[in-house]
Design a protein around this nucleic acid. Sequence first.
DNA 1: AACCAGGCAGAGG
DNA 2: CCTCTGCATGGT
Length: 275
Amino acid sequence: MIITSENFNLEHIAMSGQCFRMNELEKDRYSLVALGKYIELTQLTSDTVEITCDEKEYEEVWKDYFDMGYDYHKVVTSLLKGKDEFLKNAAAYGKGLRILKQDVYETLITFIISQRKSIPAIKTCVEALSRKYGQCKRNIHRNVEYFTFPSPEELSKATKAELREAGLGYRDDYIIKTTDAIVQERIDLKHLQQVSYEESIEILKTLSGVGIKVANCVALFSLHHIEAFPIDVWIDRILNQVYQKKFDINHYSGFAGIVQQYMFYYARYNLKQIG
DNA sequence: AACCAGGCAGAGG
DNA sequence: CCTCTGCATGGT
């Protein structure tokens, strides 16, 4: 299955820090475990991507996962035409980034894990949890074994000691409490997917280990509230040092989250000196 | 081998 | 409302 889009860059998406199970197999070739499935993706040209699935699966699953219905070209061109030099550079560098629509529970848990961890360390933890508590499946197209990310019920079987073994550190209680809240139906993830951005943030913040930053990551990377603007250490440095706290988010109302991703990705890999 | 990582909760002001 | 501190562990 070949997808044509001038804003679909696998390297940018894999390195963007929004998903943690998209891995480079070789140059321009990636594996991805998501939504209980496995695919391999190849960047054939700058605007064509091949996915190892049939058209039916693409239409039903991946088209939505990769947010193919949204016009990223419009956002990039408007930033490139704007007068903000930093965002011009960021958009030019990150062109091809997309905001994924990931599984809510997986996004919730992975971003609880993400606090005070580097992206490679997060990936190691997520992989360990999947191997221990996820299901082992085999992809028929590639004949590859993989482990799905555990469901709340599956992860609720984990003991505190086991979570420590998986490298979660002090986040063990956060994972246990948040998973319990879901399994015991004190929070309804389906309902969470139906409410407004503001309401979703309030609900998410009631969970253990979920503050304003993680809540916004869940809102942006799984609930697809693209007005969400997560402020992590990198964005904070940019807002302080590049914009002297004068960045006006309202100038990008409705798609601030996309702007945020360009900023994060550009700074993370090009401006290590501003730390 | 120090240093820091896509922060949070709890305490205290 | 705010600022300050402790936190487990792995990657570089």
